[in-house]
Nucleic acid binder design. Sequence first.
DNA 1: CATGAATGAGTTTTCATTCAT
DNA 2: TATGAATGAAAACTCATTCAT
Lengths: 209, 209, 209, 209
Amino acid sequence: MAQPDRTRDAERTRAEIIQVATREFADKGYAGARVDEIAAKMSTTKRMIYYYFGNKEQLYVEVLEHAYAGIRAIEQELDVEHLDPADAMRQLAELTFDHHESHPDFIRLVSIENIHRAEHIGRSTVLSGLANPALDVLARILDRGREAGVFRSGVDPLDIHMVISAFCVFRIANRHTFKAIFKRDMLSPDHREDHRRLLGDLVLDYLTR
Amino acid sequence: MAQPDRTRDAERTRAEIIQVATREFADKGYAGARVDEIAAKMSTTKRMIYYYFGNKEQLYVEVLEHAYAGIRAIEQELDVEHLDPADAMRQLAELTFDHHESHPDFIRLVSIENIHRAEHIGRSTVLSGLANPALDVLARILDRGREAGVFRSGVDPLDIHMVISAFCVFRIANRHTFKAIFKRDMLSPDHREDHRRLLGDLVLDYLTR
Amino acid sequence: MAQPDRTRDAERTRAEIIQVATREFADKGYAGARVDEIAAKMSTTKRMIYYYFGNKEQLYVEVLEHAYAGIRAIEQELDVEHLDPADAMRQLAELTFDHHESHPDFIRLVSIENIHRAEHIGRSTVLSGLANPALDVLARILDRGREAGVFRSGVDPLDIHMVISAFCVFRIANRHTFKAIFKRDMLSPDHREDHRRLLGDLVLDYLTR
Amino acid sequence: MAQPDRTRDAERTRAEIIQVATREFADKGYAGARVDEIAAKMSTTKRMIYYYFGNKEQLYVEVLEHAYAGIRAIEQELDVEHLDPADAMRQLAELTFDHHESHPDFIRLVSIENIHRAEHIGRSTVLSGLANPALDVLARILDRGREAGVFRSGVDPLDIHMVISAFCVFRIANRHTFKAIFKRDMLSPDHREDHRRLLGDLVLDYLTR
DNA sequence: CATGAATGAGTTTTCATTCAT
DNA sequence: TATGAATGAAAACTCATTCAT
């Protein structure tokens, strides 16, 4: 019974490092993050970062992998088959909206990774092969809507995904410059419901002509 | 005659530093950019950076200011009064679309500044007071469309600006992770026209119900 | 019967550590060798290194001791009494030559130990008292040659040993810089026989005037 | 006149670093040498090492290059044409002997570089193309001796160089293990003249059959 | 203004060794 | 004994900034 405990410790240590590092990288970016700072916020020591991850970059890659892994499963919350296509689509949009709003650090990591031209995702075997299952759900809804004669035909699911993502990501990712320039906090609760509805309307008005 | 020449030289030196620094900051982010690297790419020396800008952060702030200054004037290209509201709106959207596509470094700088929570924009007197004149044009179009009975009422111009920006920014800013995950380059010429039209349709279908 | 097995295991573990460590130290030098690397190449764990040897330095000392122990017995292959002195001397030289060529790791360890000014050998009770029995054989040959009137008199056996060793060691120890500078691999099979004969001639031409 | 002084300072700083680093690398080997230790022995700071050399390895390479450059010109001390071939050869051998004895750090660096399989020399464009001019002198002496009928024919100059080098290098390079095992310091003044004569005899007895 | 040398304070990384079970 | 986790101390290396001329 000794073995499992040690293993459990190792997992716990790794998990703590990932968790603290996620905050630090999301907060400061890759270059701005400090290994020392991550260490200072952990219950273990800096040496463990190198023991488990080898170097700063690999730690960052695993932070990314972990973040993406925690993000995937929107479609599982969605029982789309029992809804008519329009309701299903609005629900998908709203779920995505909520999902982004509740994962701002993930959005920040994605922004950071784009600054680095996704070179780390490219190097990660786990991430570069990551298909988004939500896309299948989306395609299914579009098909059903088209077959029912309520949705446009000729719509590429990935384009709709792009529209929804763009809106949801922008609110989070560009919040600060938007606020600095336009004096409006896109994440203020005042606008939350309006933005949610706006997104649904946007997509549905487009799909239903 | 010596004084003006010196002034001219000084302007030229400043301009070159700004230009080189813009590339470097847009490329690597604030923390990732190297003062030495900027210096190496200039025709003058590193000392000049400190002479003219004092430190790395102030250089970055002036890079941001310069970038925003070069971006503002979309509305000047737009003769909106001679178009009907729908056409004007589509044209505004497409101009914005083109504008973003031709200024990727600006988009990158904005992403970077958001990672830093717009703290530098906040500190810049020039930028924090920067209203976007395009917003006035947008508001005018919306008003005219509503008055003509072709647009929804109750539409906040800033929301429409947000929708348009979100789409245009997302294509540029999230290009790399999007490609890594979905194997599609959003900036590929193949999609350019489709995306332009998609954006216009999106906005107009929404505004016209 | 448990005790002997344990002892046997212990011996086997020690032997494996010594073997792996010999390669690593010979390959990288004392400071360049990595305890982790040695551990990674073993079937047992790093802890065993410390269990059996206490620390890196003591492991290195025992590697040296083991290497010297495996090297000693040239004279046993030599049945010098049935040869005339000249033949015996040439045979001794050639045996030494072959012996060095087939133990390059030992030569490397000796070079490494000289870089460290033989401080570890000095500390090793086993090694610092190590007389070279081949020297007795050499002295005996010289005596017989002098008595037979074919060899010079006044020749110090240790000087001849030095000459032979110098040549044999140099080929191995300085192989790489020699090749880099003179573009000749002293260990190439093309030169092997020539070098062997050259060494014998050198010693005999000197001893026979 | 300001420029040359700054340049002079730079050269002086570089030279001091090389000088101190030469001692440190020769003393401890590549892996054993400490950049901090080198810095501590300089009048400037560690930062300068990286300013001028980039990293430890490049510093080591330049130490090697500098050491080889300081070693080359034995043949210039040798007025070989006015001597008969035997005297010339003995003089070359003795000059080489003296030269090695007075440059023990160089010999140590060569030993160290051989431990690293001459990988740094190979990477150095300066060193890998370094021909040894002494070899031409040696070849010339051999030719003249052969033509005069006093030397063997069929002797490869490089083999003679190897024999001489082997002897001279061995005394320095293997001094410590030799002393530990045989209790004789090959560099003791007591043996100096004997070894010098031994080397000359060895080569001449061989060449003159 | 201009220039290359210089630098202090940090930042990442490494390594022999020990601990807990 | 055996094992993987853990670690303190030190080592290599970096970077924005300043100095001397």
